[in-house]
Design a protein around this nucleic acid. Structure first.
Lengths: 201, 201
DNA sequence: GACATAAAATACCATATGGTAACAAATGAG
DNA sequence: CTCATTTGTTACCATATGGTATTTTATGTC
């Protein structure tokens, strides 16, 4: 994944740190909303000029896509860890509830969900990446639920596909509600209620 | 509610029909997204000039607020009818599911939910109205559920308040998913699953 | 020092936005 | 007919956007 760009031998040394710029962009997109953060604003926050940014990322689409990549690596991966290290249905659902409702990083919502909600405003590359992540997430939910089903615990008359979609949407809803300042206890109650369909006869 | 504006005795007769303009605006906001429709575009679609619109509605906030008012009158009222004419828990939930999943008017989503999702982008008046409608909706859900609870059918350990919030959010989710082109059958399955918590022991 | 090279910043472009000043046209009152 | 009144339209404003042509600055090479 690390691009190991060959540093040139001659020329003015670069002062712009792409990683730092990406951190700025990712945080701004994340804590506010991708549609409400302009490239101008990011340049100002990062203390660089616009052409510097455009040389590195090509376009706004390139920047937002790179920011989303970084977010997937640094943040979203944790959710996949929870799913892949699943021990049992109830425990893993509880872990997901804890993550969605209590993890301080999700206090201002999830960048991926924000981008997905406003995907029609994204550039083609970023949108493609959003759909990729969405599919990966759904697959992870599905394989987790399939394992639970194989282990026995499963409500009758529910397909794994439908359950995965449902689970994903309920978690997205909870995190999105956190971003909009809902009462955390209420959110937890609602998510617990929504996911109780998996663990009740 | 009808403003019965006294038509002046003198002056150029008006050709602009505020109702028609509001219909154009409401439909555009509704079928696209409030944040993606400019006043310029609305003027063009309605075939009027910008100052005409601004004389009538004062500002973009005034226009969007008026459009939301009209939407509440013409569309949202139906949902309140379903709730007030509630006959039983199961039947009314089914009616809500039908409305959310099958009503052709919700095929492109719900203007109210779209505005609520992007409320931070709205002007103060429109946002205030959104919150008003939100509270009214929640109250309607609560009184419906309270009646069901009084009638006997109610899961243990669930407050009416929490149930109302949950119900409202699940319906909002379903309608929002319709707007983003999800498979209608899948949406119905998910909403049915979500609302099954009300009707299962 | 002179020069190629790469990165930086300034200053700009076209476009779009919400909003308005200034003016034209259509009516009733005198 | 003249004039006030009301509406409508044209043309404009300041601001912001994504994006770029141009120039300046800092380096290694010769």
């Amino acid at each position: 994944m690390s691009d190991d760009i060959p540093r040139p031998l001659r020329g003015r040394p670069r002062t712009m740190d792409p990683g730092r710029v990406l951190d700025v962009a990712m945080t701004a997109y994340w804590h506010s909303d991708p549609a409400d953060v302009s490239v101008n604003a990011i340049c100002q926050m990062a203390g660089i000029s616009k052409p510097s940014l455009y040389r590195e990322f090509g376009s706004e689409d390139g920047l937002s896509r790179a920011a989303l990549d970084r977010y997937a690596d640094q943040v979203l991966s944790e959710m996949f860890v929870i799913l892949h290290g699943a021990t049992g249905l109830r425990q893993t659902l509880d872990a997901l509830i804890d993550f969605a409702c209590d993890d301080p990083r999700m206090e201002t919502g999830c960048l991926f969900y924000k981008m997905r909600a406003g995907r029609h405003r994204l550039g083609p590359d970023t949108r493609a990446r959003v759909e990729e992540i969405d599919a990966a997430g759904q697959a992870a939910y599905a394989s987790f639920l399939q394992a639970a089903r194989d282990a026995g615990d499963w409500p009758a008359g529910l397909s794994v596909e439908a359950g995965a979609k449902y689970l994903g949407e309920q978690i997205a809803l909870a995190i999105t509600q956190r971003a909009s300042g809902e009462d955390p206890a209420r959110i937890r109650d609602m998510l617990t209620l929504a996911l109780s369909v998996f663990t009740r006869p």
